[in-house]
Write a protein that binds this DNA or RNA. Structure first.
Length: 290
DNA sequence: TTCCAGGAATCAA
DNA sequence: TTGATTCATGGA
């Protein structure tokens, strides 16, 4: 059990930054660092159920960023109407601290796919290529996220069987680079964001947006601001309703306007736009939305 | 049916 | 540099 303050667990795990969480009853089940876990938030407490008692809980507390001071972060957001509305609508939404390979691989699958489809692809890949992990019988078979070497060794048709489409060759290319050490995801931690971004974008199929997702969701880089179709609409409609700046111009605007926690602000804008469009990742939490 | 989805590579101008 | 096209697949 962990204290939980100012933390919307359902929004955090369902807002489209991670793809392995499933809603079962009032609990969220997923696999983190090769461990199955069932999470349930009740008032000020978070209850975590695992299959095998771990030596410590850092793998979970770090992943969920349980020690982070949300109020301090929200206080750094720009005081404009858009961010005030987004903060009011999404309060409690958190960023996770994901494993780089799983994050990179997942977002390679994400291009022009809906979040629900990305989940299905990730699920298929884990079932087909992942090692089984311990889980209670009522949770069903559970699998770890496959190592890069597993995808690198797979034939492209095997990957396409998981509905990857044209992204299959992208995943294989990145998997090969990681498996062979050409791309060392651990050394990226010590690099400045632009240099780390450049390394990621060297992968075939990884552009600015996917690289920024990995930099933000896995490495916690607050100077990474992924601009997808939703965030693009947010920037156009909420900040430049009259003019029609180019995407490059909007990207530059994000580099200066959103402050030291710009990445966090980005996720609030993203989730706010989806809520407004009636695509609840979490708020009006129903089985259908998952 | 038609449109669109947490894009990126490619090619034309 | 910028703009259109193509790439799979399935939800809404």
């Amino acid at each position: 059990m962990f204290p939980l303050r100012d933390y919307d667990l359902a929004a955090t795990l369902g807002c489209g930054q991670a793809f392995r969480w499933a809603l079962r009853g009032n609990a969220l089940e997923g696999v983190v660092s090769g461990r199955w876990v069932r999470l349930r938030s009740e008032g000020p407490n978070l209850f975590a159920e695992v299959a095998e008692t771990p030596p410590d809980w850092h793998w979970l507390t770090a992943h969920l960023r349980l020690d982070e001071d949300l109020a301090g972060i929200l206080a750094t957001f720009p005081d404009d109407p858009a961010m005030r509305a987004a903060t009011a609508a999404c309060r409690g939404l958190r960023l996770l601290r994901q494993e780089p390979w799983e994050c990179l691989a997942s977002f390679i699958l994400s291009s022009t796919k809906q979040i629900v489809q990305i989940r299905q692809c990730v699920q298929s890949l884990c079932e087909r290529f992942g090692d089984p992990v311990a889980a209670p019988a009522d949770a069903g078979p559970q699998f770890a996220f496959p190592a890069a070497a597993r995808f690198a060794a797979a034939a492209e048709p095997e990957l396409r069987a998981c509905k990857l489409g044209f992204r299959a060759k992208y995943l294989r290319d990145a998997a090969r680079r990681v498996a062979e050490g050409e791309l060392d995801l651990e050394t990226l931690r010590g690099l400045p964001t632009p240099a780390a971004r450049e390394r990621l974008m060297a992968c075939f199929g990884v552009g600015r947006k996917i690289a920024d997702c990995v930099l933000l969701f896995a490495y916690g880089r607050q100077d990474a601001f992924p601009v997808d179709v939703w965030v693009l609409r947010a920037l156009q409609q909420l900040y430049f309703p009259k003019r029609r700046p180019s995407k490059a111009r909007l990207q530059r605007f994000t580099e200066t306007h959103f402050g030291p926690n710009a990445g966090y602000a980005q996720q609030y804008l993203f989730h706010y736009m989806r809520l407004a469009a009636g695509r609840p990742g979490a708020a009006a939490l129903t089985a259908r939305s998952w």
